[in-house]
Design a protein around this nucleic acid. Structure first.
Lengths: 170, 170
DNA sequence: CGACATTGTTATATAGGACTACAATCGCCG
DNA sequence: CGGCGATTGTAGTCCTATATAACAATGTCG
């Protein structure tokens, strides 16, 4: 244990399961003129994304799992030993956020920090057995809900959509 | 002035321009295994949406305008006299949020509340001249940035994308 | 008129971040 | 090999965007 683990963290406070804002979906209100709002890619993307998030939310209901937490678990599953900084890069958040997230995962017994022999500053992050089991179950559920959500469009549209979204996200 | 306007609001506090979290974009990190994350519509939509928000953010830089504020201005422009509750419905947020938003718009001199003759409870919301000028300028800028962002795909892809996104958002 | 619903409002709580400063450690360069 | 800048995790602070609940004023409808 180096110094940085000595400080007793208030894990309890950070372990609170988020009630979270219900994502719901952004319904179109009758009688309202939206002008050209739907012609904006940004607006259209956001509406679709909120709807998708709703499906995700139902898939992970009760597990206290949020979007970044799910992503983190997937990344940890596929990249054992990753550092917090890299995790933050993947999630697109600051280092400090990745640390809070890691604290939560550790507090839940889903992941653990292990010292790296090659770098005394960094931790290697690993899923625990519990974390492994949880993410496998969650991935099945999320995939299922994603498929159900995607049922609104056909297979070709879905393929095209993913292709175009990737071009936009780059 | 009915009672509900009498309470002196701390407009100053709410008038603060948001520094806001820089949206940036969620870059793909080299050497990391993402598993099937990109196959999830939700994940792909989110990445694209963050990228789009980045374009929006650049378009509205310096004006203190956030996404919901922009939407509110557009909606007010096209639907003068709308109530706060309806505005909240359009934005997909709670009434209290719509009120805070309205407070901000009013504090900035962009919109104003006027009594409705038909309903003593509700306010009708209207853009001021300043708000009118701002939203017209902003819409031009946002459209331009949206076009620039959309340049990553061709016209047919864009049309298809909007069509498919609409199906998903419903 | 009286019960109930709706509107705006206020107060409160919380998640989710960013940002900064700091100590330990690494890596490089002279 | 010794020192200095860069990097990592950490702690502390701050802020935004939300939601929720309780409330008074007002509307609606039986």
């Amino acid at each position: 244990m180096t110094k940085r683990r000595l400080a007793a963290r208030d894990l309890a406070r950070r372990t609170t399961l988020p009630r979270g804002p219900r994502p719901s979906s952004i319904a179109r209100v009758a009688g309202i003129d939206y002008l050209d709002l739907d012609q904006h890619l940004g607006y259209a993307l956001r509406r679709a994304q909120v709807a998708a998030f709703d499906a995700f939310h139902r898939a992970t209901a009760g597990a206290g799992i949020t979007r970044p937490r799910f992503t983190a678990l997937v990344i940890l599953q596929a990249n054992p030993g990753i550092t917090q900084t890299t995790l933050g890069d993947v999630l697109g958040t600051a280092r400090s956020g990745a640390m809070l997230l890691t604290d939560w995962l550790e507090g839940q017994g889903l992941a653990e920090r292990r010292h790296r022999s090659d770098d005394g500053r960094a931790w290697g992050l690993y899923l625990t057995g519990k974390g492994q089991r949880l993410i496998e179950r969650l991935r099945r559920r999320v995939r299922a809900y994603d498929r159900r959500f995607a049922a609104r469009i056909d297979a070709r549209e879905r393929r095209e959509l993913l292709r175009v979204l990737e071009k936009l996200a780059r």
